[in-house]
């Protein structure tokens, strides 16, 4: 962990309950420093998306509430803020997993939607196009007609126009070819360097996520079970086995490893 002075986001002992009955995440704590790429990896239903939605203020619309813990950005609590205020006031911007662009609007209109651009809208949008040249070529077509990769680019571009300090990206690699994922990660790195952003990545594709992140956490059953630098995590036996599919020297198939009781190995 870096020193506390440049801490951007601080999540402490977060607990979220859906529909008053089912606890999705419990005791989740982590910090994100300025200019850092933080990755959360884990399987389906591990609570990754819930964490993300809690940070971006979306829980109310899902019938869920934060029952314990606190989310702070620059020492300001954002537990009770509405989604639009979180975007406007705190600079936390989410790229959601599904429905991430307005399909009935054109690409150009999609980029014009964010409210915080202000006067120099044209230049800012032009600037975004320099990162995504393929979007510029299709700026007149409806977003609903774009391919998966282009949609992801558009969603990231749209998020960038909300002048973020912390970009939350949910499942960047979902449904995309490995080549496209690598290209997107490269663009992300470039954007991060140019704008001085912090990025919180939530991924199932652990290999890709760990290759780009500076710090990572593994979630399982609504808790963070492991955290550390990617090198440390990649060296960890269980991470190798369960998320990277490497055991011993050779790669193994999921069918062979799933026999082990995973939680028991970690929790004794």
């Amino acid at each position: 962990m870096k020193s506390d002075s440049n801490k951007l986001l601080e999540v402490t002992k977060l607990e979220v309950v859906y529909n008053h009955v089912s606890t999705a995440i419990q005791g989740v704590s982590f910090n994100i420093c300025e200019g850092q790429i933080f990755a959360i990896i884990g399987g389906n239903g591990a609570g990754k998306t819930t964490t993300l939605r809690a940070i971006s203020g979306f829980l109310n619309s899902d019938n869920a509430v934060i029952t314990d813990g606190e989310i702070k950005i620059r020492d300001r609590s954002i537990n009770m803020l509405k989604p639009q205020d979180i975007t406007r006031q705190t600079g936390i911007v989410l790229v959601p997993e599904r429905n991430k662009v307005f399909e009935t609007l054109t690409v150009q209109e999609n980029l014009a939607v964010p409210t915080s651009i202000g006067k120099r809208a044209k230049e800012t949008i032009q600037n975004i196009y320099t990162y995504f040249p393929s979007l510029y070529e299709r700026r007149k077509s409806l977003a609903g007609l774009l391919s998966g990769g282009e949609r992801q680019m558009l969603a990231i571009g749209q998020a960038m126009l909300c002048s973020p300090e912390l970009l939350l990206i949910d499942e960047l690699s979902l449904g995309l070819s490995p080549v496209m994922v690598e290209a997107l990660f490269e663009i992300l790195l470039k954007i991060k360097a140019d704008f001085g952003l912090s990025i919180l990545l939530v991924e199932q594709n652990a290999m890709e996520a760990l290759s780009i992140a500076e710090y990572a956490a593994v979630m399982e059953n609504g808790m963070i079970v492991l955290a550390g630098t990617p090198e440390k995590l990649m060296a960890h036996e269980d991470v190798k086995e369960f998320y990277l599919g490497i055991r011993g020297k050779e790669k193994k198939r999921y069918k062979d490893v799933k026999q082990y009781s995973r939680t028991r190995r970690w929790w004794g």
């Binding site: 971006s56 639009q84 959601p96 991430k100 409210t115 749209q158």
Partner: peptide, 8 residues
């Protein structure tokens, strides 16, 4: 939902 997220 997305509109709210984009600051509208």
């Amino acid at each position: 939902l997305l509109a709210a997220q984009r600051g509208i």
